[in-house]
Simulated scan of single mutants.
Amino acid sequence: MFQIVGVIAVFVLVFGGFMLSGGNFEIILKALPFEMMMIGGAAVGAFLIGNAPKTVMKTLGDFGKIVSGSQWKQQDYVDLLTLLFQLTKTMKTKGVIALETHIEKPHESAIFTAYPRILKDHFAVDFICDTLRMMTMNLEDPHQVEDAMEKQLEKHHHEAAAPAHAVQLMADALPALGIVAAVLGIIKTMGGIDAPPQILGKMIGGALTGTFLGVYLAYGFVGPFATRLQAVYDEEAIFYKIIQNVLVAHLHGNAAQISVEIGRGSVPSAFQPSFLELEEAISSVQAA
């Protein structure tokens, strides 16, 4: 919602100020289609040249996150902590054999299928299962497991955040592409240098529209979009970091309840369940 308000503010206040100061939209409107064709076309072309097809498709798919934010909401964090409680509790009380049926076929597991939103996230499920599988193979050194998990998280976050980096590069390029369009406008103007001053003035104004659009789009829209995407990716990465914190705490010999409480401390403040809320969720699962 705030992002939509921001877009409207950037558009209305800039052009509203121009209009109130006595600016003439005729020159801008006349030059706009051609300048946008040059600047926007070059920006999109450079974006396609500089990024892999997977990154291009992910950027298009993730653009809605600028408004919707992270895919994980408060209930998802409660579900994750409850899921990890069940898995670590099962491992502690019933042993490795009882856990294997859940981590080998998570889509058939009674524990995992109780949390469909988490089950849809392939990385989250694989991350949990692979780590628990390492533990069942007697890799019980918390430091080794934590290091292995950290490397997986770094790789995943780097790949997930690629669209934000790509959009930021586009924002960085837009002012220069605006200058390219402006220079072409000046070249066109120089070709008609013998025209009357009124005509030359409009031609120069049209050329400067390119510089304006490049800077305006870069710092008013595309750059903020990239910043917002990066913030969303960083927030989503915390979800997976919680998995690491809980499982490493479990390896250190903590009880399942203590392990998930350590994980609860890493939940973003806006979505963090209270101690009682998490305890009630765990109690309801145990009762079931």
Score class of each variant (00 low, 15 high):
residue 52 A to D: 14
residue 154 E to S: 09
residue 251 L to C: 02
residue 117 R to N: 12
residue 124 A to I: 10
residue 119 L to S: 02
residue 117 R to D: 10
residue 49 I to K: 07
residue 212 F to G: 06
residue 264 R to E: 12
residue 151 K to D: 13
residue 142 P to T: 11
residue 125 V to L: 00
residue 66 I to Q: 02
residue 11 F to M: 12
residue 95 G to K: 05
residue 56 V to T: 10
residue 201 G to I: 04
residue 7 V to N: 08
residue 29 L to A: 12
residue 155 K to I: 14
residue 103 I to Y: 06
residue 248 V to F: 03
residue 58 K to Q: 15
residue 207 A to G: 01
residue 147 D to R: 11
residue 264 R to V: 09
residue 44 V to H: 07
residue 123 F to A: 06
residue 144 Q to L: 13
residue 182 A to V: 01
residue 257 Q to P: 00
residue 146 E to R: 14
residue 85 F to A: 05
residue 152 Q to Y: 08
residue 143 H to E: 15
residue 8 I to D: 06
residue 164 A to S: 15
residue 172 D to A: 12
residue 110 A to Q: 15
residue 168 Q to D: 14
residue 216 Y to D: 01
residue 120 K to M: 06
residue 47 F to T: 03
residue 251 L to M: 12
residue 25 F to I: 03
residue 31 A to V: 07
residue 139 L to K: 08
residue 36 M to N: 05
residue 120 K to V: 02
residue 156 H to V: 07
residue 240 Y to F: 15
residue 120 K to Q: 14
residue 198 Q to H: 10
residue 18 F to A: 10
residue 174 L to K: 09
residue 19 M to N: 07
residue 29 L to H: 08
residue 23 G to T: 11
residue 87 L to C: 10
residue 278 L to K: 04
residue 202 K to M: 06
residue 7 V to E: 07
residue 85 F to E: 02
residue 222 V to T: 12
residue 86 Q to K: 11
residue 71 Q to I: 06
residue 65 K to P: 02
residue 76 D to L: 03
residue 96 V to T: 14
residue 68 S to A: 12
residue 259 S to V: 11
residue 204 I to P: 01
residue 224 P to L: 03
residue 253 G to R: 11
residue 85 F to V: 00
residue 6 G to C: 12
residue 204 I to M: 09
residue 180 V to Y: 08
residue 166 A to N: 01
residue 268 P to A: 04
residue 135 M to N: 04
residue 32 L to N: 03
residue 76 D to F: 02
residue 131 T to K: 00
residue 138 N to I: 13
residue 80 L to C: 12
residue 284 S to P: 00
residue 165 H to R: 15
residue 68 S to T: 15
residue 9 A to W: 00
residue 270 A to P: 03
residue 149 M to D: 04
residue 26 E to H: 05
residue 253 G to Q: 13
residue 147 D to Y: 08
residue 142 P to W: 04
residue 14 V to F: 13
residue 127 F to L: 11
residue 228 R to K: 14
residue 75 Q to H: 09
residue 116 P to C: 10
residue 132 L to S: 04
residue 68 S to I: 06
residue 32 L to K: 08
residue 177 L to M: 12
residue 40 G to K: 07
residue 140 E to C: 10
residue 186 I to C: 07
residue 217 L to E: 07
residue 51 N to T: 11
residue 178 G to R: 08
residue 17 G to L: 07
residue 163 P to W: 08
residue 227 T to L: 05
residue 128 I to L: 06
residue 235 E to I: 02
residue 180 V to A: 12
residue 76 D to W: 02
residue 165 H to Q: 15
residue 39 I to M: 04
residue 117 R to T: 10
residue 142 P to L: 10
residue 96 V to M: 11
residue 24 N to W: 01
residue 262 I to K: 12
residue 282 I to P: 08
residue 62 D to S: 13
